[in-house]
């Protein structure tokens, strides 16, 4: 009875919790690098540094301002892309860790037997 209860829990609520843990590990990487927020604001000007301009200004002034602002946006996008890249690498790594945790959990009930086999094999 207790054994049945154990297996029901291990592959029921326990497995769900293990998946939650794995999800949190990936979430941690995405959060710490602000991946979602940086994607949303990918082409925003860097630190809001912009040159105000109006259409009625002289064409050269207008284009100069627009050029500076484009540069500001490009710098912003470059810096953000680097951070997003790091974030994704980190997330992949954490995904790997999560996969190991999940594998251990799924194999959990069989692990003592596997360890016993290993012990016997080493001796033999």
């Amino acid at each position: 009875m207790l054994i049945a209860q154990y297996f029901a829990w291990h592959y029921g609520r326990g497995l769900k919790a293990a998946f939650g843990l794995a999800e949190n590990a990936i979430e941690f990487a995405l959060h710490i690098w602000s991946v979602r927020e940086l994607l949303v604001s990918l082409f925003s000007p860097w630190k809001q540094i912009i040159v105000p301009h109006r259409r009625e200004e002289a064409l050269s002034t207008f284009f100069t301002a627009a050029w500076y602002n484009l540069i500001s946006r490009m710098i912003g996008a470059a810096v953000r892309l680097i951070a997003i890249g790091f974030g994704l690498v980190h997330a992949v790594f954490m995904g790997g860790v999560a996969a190991v945790i999940l594998s251990f959990w799924i194999l959990g009930p069989a692990l003592p037997i596997l360890f016993l086999f290993a012990a016997l094999i080493v001796l033999v």
Partner: peptide
């Protein structure tokens, strides 16, 4: 987190 303020002035 880092980078959260990169869109701010």
């Amino acid at each position: 987190p880092m980078g959260r303020e990169w869109a701010a002035g």
